[in-house]
């Protein structure tokens, strides 16, 4: 555009320095919202767990009627996969924790009734959820006030609970009714 008016504006300085230093406030905001590798890792891991939960539910439904063929992971393995670390600063709500405890007890009691392949699928998926929880807690340790991460942690615990409910129903021995 060969226009004297436009040319005059195009010759303006590329930069205008702000009258005050904006960095201190920016630095404060960076402290509140750090971007770290763990924060970025937590989301895909948790999403993977969600996908795995759906796949596991379908697999369990089909496999439950199949005969057991291989070695069975012991019930202690199950217990270790769903144990909440004593080091964890974040625990589920008391209501969720209570329901979770009952479901775990019921599942351990009926563990041997599940076919071996189902047990392996269950173990793999619980391990995936455990990895998600660990990653989210690591991200939260660096960004404790991040509401999205806190929500994600809660959602992941709920996914674990949903899985436990599905397993109990699948073993035809669900002793309690749980509303999720």
């Amino acid at each position: 555009m060969n226009d004297p008016l436009f040319n005059r504006f195009q010759s303006l300085p590329e930069a205008i320095e702000p009258e005050r230093d904006l960095w201190p406030e920016i630095a404060t905001r960076l402290d509140r919202s750090p971007v770290t590798a763990t924060t970025r890792v937590a989301w895909p891991v948790a999403l993977a767990a969600s996908v795995a939960l759906v796949a596991m539910t379908a697999a369990i439904t089909w496999r439950i009627a199949s005969p057991a063929v291989d070695q069975v992971p012991p019930a202690q393995t199950l217990a270790s996969l769903i144990q909440i670390s004593s080091d964890s600063e974040y625990t589920p709500t008391p209501e969720l924790l209570s329901t979770r405890t009952e479901l775990i007890y019921s599942l351990q009691r009926n563990w041997s009734r599940l076919p071996a392949e189902s047990q392996r699928i269950v173990a793999d998926n619980l391990l995936e959820i455990r990895d998600s929880l660990t990653a989210i807690e690591a991200a939260l340790s660096q960004d404790p006030d991040n509401a999205s991460l806190q929500q994600l942690l809660h959602t992941t615990y709920e996914q674990e609970l949903a899985m436990l409910v599905t397993l109990n129903r699948a073993s035809h021995s669900l002793p309690i009714e749980v509303e999720l």
């Binding site: 590329e14 930069a15 205008i16 702000p18 960095w23 920016i26 960076l30 750090p34 971007v35």
Partner: peptide
């Protein structure tokens, strides 16, 4: 995650962004 490096990038670019 190096905030000091980011501050240098800020110092070099803030004028253009603010303008």
């Amino acid at each position: 995650g190096d905030q000091r490096a980011f501050e240098q990038l800020y110092r070099a670019n803030v004028g253009r962004v603010y303008a």
